[in-house]
Design a protein around this nucleic acid. Sequence first.
DNA 1: GCCCTTGATTAGAGCGCTCTAAGCTTGTAG
DNA 2: CTACAAGCTTAGAGCGCTCTAATCAAGGGC
Lengths: 336, 336
Amino acid sequence: MGKPTMEDVAARAGVSRALVSLVMRNAPNVSAQRRAAVRKAADELGYSPHVMARSLASRTSTVLGVMVNDLRNAFFADVVEGLDAAAQAAGFDLILNTGGRIPSREGAALRSLLSFRPAGVVLLSPVVPAAAIEAAARQCPVVLVSRTSRLSTVDTVNDDGEAGAALAVEHLAQLGHRRIAHLDGGGAAGAAARRRGFRQAMRAHGLEPIVVRSEHTDTAGEKAVQELLSSYSPAPTALLAGNDFNAVGAISALEEHGLRVPEDVSVVGYDNTSLASLRHISLTTVDQPRAEMARLAFDALLERVRGERTEPVRHLLHPSLVVRETTGPNSGEAQR
Amino acid sequence: MGKPTMEDVAARAGVSRALVSLVMRNAPNVSAQRRAAVRKAADELGYSPHVMARSLASRTSTVLGVMVNDLRNAFFADVVEGLDAAAQAAGFDLILNTGGRIPSREGAALRSLLSFRPAGVVLLSPVVPAAAIEAAARQCPVVLVSRTSRLSTVDTVNDDGEAGAALAVEHLAQLGHRRIAHLDGGGAAGAAARRRGFRQAMRAHGLEPIVVRSEHTDTAGEKAVQELLSSYSPAPTALLAGNDFNAVGAISALEEHGLRVPEDVSVVGYDNTSLASLRHISLTTVDQPRAEMARLAFDALLERVRGERTEPVRHLLHPSLVVRETTGPNSGEAQR
DNA sequence: GCCCTTGATTAGAGCGCTCTAAGCTTGTAG
DNA sequence: CTACAAGCTTAGAGCGCTCTAATCAAGGGC
């Protein structure tokens, strides 16, 4: 438990504390001989510099705060992995928090992150009020992922939900579908953009958009399908779910109603989580480039940290469609 | 970007820095009047204490290092969520790292965590050599989750994989199954215990254990089933997969072979991930109490931090069986 | 031989906080 | 009126490090 300090290393190597500091930071202008002696002493003592002390003394931080509202959501877990990869490569460390989509908890989590005086903060789909974000941005660079903002002090990284939804509609229309319904994600992250994109794309194809309110869970997907089947007499032949979980729930409900996927009804998900790629599910879905989103978020932070940029940046990533086995041609059912 | 310091608050409130420190720590023996004045000044300035400076000065740490090998694995994501919940409640913060199941990367990640001089470190299913763990344990309390160890300086939290496998075998035997196969997880965390438990339980029921080598992925599950069906002439009527993903892959392969689940073959998973509870899959599986594991890991750390305990503790949690719709009675097929 | 440069090393202040010990008020007993 | 305890408040050292400025040795030019 006794952790050696720089002073201990200096004593053992017979040099000053300052010299040890220079060696630990790989500074130039240290003779090879002393450098070796210091390295040796450090190794023998199992010494490694105290990050917090370094941070305090150098008035710089190598810590990145990350607030995620739900790690169980594979989308966020993937983004965190991506952030960690970028951070490790650049010598940064992540301090991680969850906010549980509860504004008060997220606020506390954010404050907790800021008390580390991090180099920057990444908020994954936060629900805190804009004022809280603005306040945070006064302390350090802030990047929002899966949330938009008009604040000129924060950067944002989002996937283009409108384009993603349009991609799905395009695909389904090409397969001959006319009656296409969207299971709306409600207030969830990105749901509004998807809904908007769905509506626009449908109209662009001269089709009437059908939107059923749902949530980003599988049980909500089941419920939405039941509602859909009971309220629309010629049932839709295709569905764009709010996300993958929602899609899987929808598929369950469809099958319970004796409708086969994709023969009777095509289903498209959103997110391309690991769930979608399971052979047993093999869901056609819209892929958000999570690794790239993480990379961009990290880079945006770094640019601000280095003072290379002061104007906000708005990344809108283009999603792509991954066609699997839950979509197929409209089965010749009367074209209305 | 200009962060106020304790000195600023002191000046504004017209008191000394030390008094501000006392107020921020909710120390007793501060007059209500001064306390209010300090609070007010702090609020107006948007001040919150610098955790790192505090840590340095107080020679204590409120940081917990967490190394996880793969956040994408829902099991680990759940444990991290649990750790975060416990940490937040106790005023600790998590610094999070991934090691990717690569010893060298995990080693670097661990060193990185230790350079924060954390109060303790939690390693989730690490693959680093015992020597590295021992070295870490000399620096601060270490808890291993999903990995065993004989080191008297570290605590461990594991689920009882033997009992879990036995639970599954018990369930299947009770349903009349005799030819039960286990898709072995190979070198994955916990796989050895499950294999052992499976073999023992089978023998205890007077049954011949069938073990096929696999991995903890769905594609491996498919492959394993194909192998199984081609090498065992009376095909097994029940399967215990290595984990849930593996089980889903197995189900796909079974269905492709025209075998229905559970009518022809029963399938049991392991982990009870969110996947398993999807109605569309509805997998019978063994549940590891992840939240409790996280809680115990945190508590073990805290006990060591507080010096309340020096002997190692070995938590072996009892898993439970969650029966859903992928298991059913042996369909009267010749009882061998 | 002297002055300067150049590169290597170190002293010492200070980062923002905690903590111990000392100082300052009061109130009260003698 | 003095003494002293109890309750508040503060001075000042120090946590482990970085960084600036100073020191020092070793040449090199004249």
